[in-house]
Design a protein around this nucleic acid. Sequence first.
DNA 1: CATGAACGACAACCTGGTTGACGATATAGA
DNA 2: TCTATATCGTCAACCAGGTTGTCGTTCATG
Lengths: 166, 166
Amino acid sequence: MSSDMTVDGRQPAGAPGFELPVRLLLGFRSLIDDLHAELARQGHPDARPMHGFVFQAIGPGGTTAAELGRRLGVSKQAAGKTIDSLVKLGYVRREPDPRDQRQKIVVLTEHGIDALVRSAAIFDELRARWADILGTERLAALEADLRAVTGDLVLPLDIPGWFGGG
Amino acid sequence: MSSDMTVDGRQPAGAPGFELPVRLLLGFRSLIDDLHAELARQGHPDARPMHGFVFQAIGPGGTTAAELGRRLGVSKQAAGKTIDSLVKLGYVRREPDPRDQRQKIVVLTEHGIDALVRSAAIFDELRARWADILGTERLAALEADLRAVTGDLVLPLDIPGWFGGG
DNA sequence: CATGAACGACAACCTGGTTGACGATATAGA
DNA sequence: TCTATATCGTCAACCAGGTTGTCGTTCATG
């Protein structure tokens, strides 16, 4: 717990190790909170943090519930429930697939596309705000370093269960 | 969505804005996943990502349920439920407060303290692993930059509800 | 043409969050 | 001193999102 310990012969730790995850989560959270504050102002008060990831996973051509579940790392049933709620909010629509009558294709509505486009613009603006604080080069270094440590990991979307319970 | 756009006259964006939150979350998640993989090996297979934050919030002297809820940004009822599950897992214990019979003081058990101490050591080790990849200075810069953009924000623990639903 | 696999949906259940209500206790004021 | 007011912890009801298991339908394959 003390901040002046050394770690198996390497340099002094400098910062305690537990600060890193907290700052990463805090950074994520502040970006997402800012995004949704702005999104609410621009006609999307119902959007939730989850939705952006789901929209990305659906993609421009649409997908099926089972495929969406696979991309998000959750069960097809969970994906189905998420789709239900997005349908209720008017962000997506289920269309029958004429070539395979078992499956339905989930596509973004105009409202959903609008949210996606606005989100991209807002994220660019928020990134620019970070660039104003850190400088362009430091921000690029931060992104590069995060890429270096996270590699090509994919982001599972099972956050609630992952975080809390078994 | 294209990565060569410019943002209102500033430098070329370089990276699309939505990569930043994804990488931040990915970094957080990989640290926490590594922590819990190691924690499970060291006798704490039941520990969940949430618990570490709760342990920190309880602190060495213990707290009450209502105060814990305030620190974590959730209701006292939610804090009470979390305490219940922690008691069941043997991480904390409720003690009566002789000076105020309304409240009970929640304190870490030996098992809980063990988890906290081991977590701190593992986090230091994980940070050292990042330092091996990025270099000590780049890592320090990354931490400093995250501090600069997140400031003295406090981390609310209402993750499940925050992320997904109303 | 029969078999096996995949889709979407339904049901039951777990966790963790919320609000509202309640008895018990502490505290401040008339 | 007696009486409001506020806080603590708990209980109950509810919601969101996750899980597994099951099932009828439909496609694909041998």
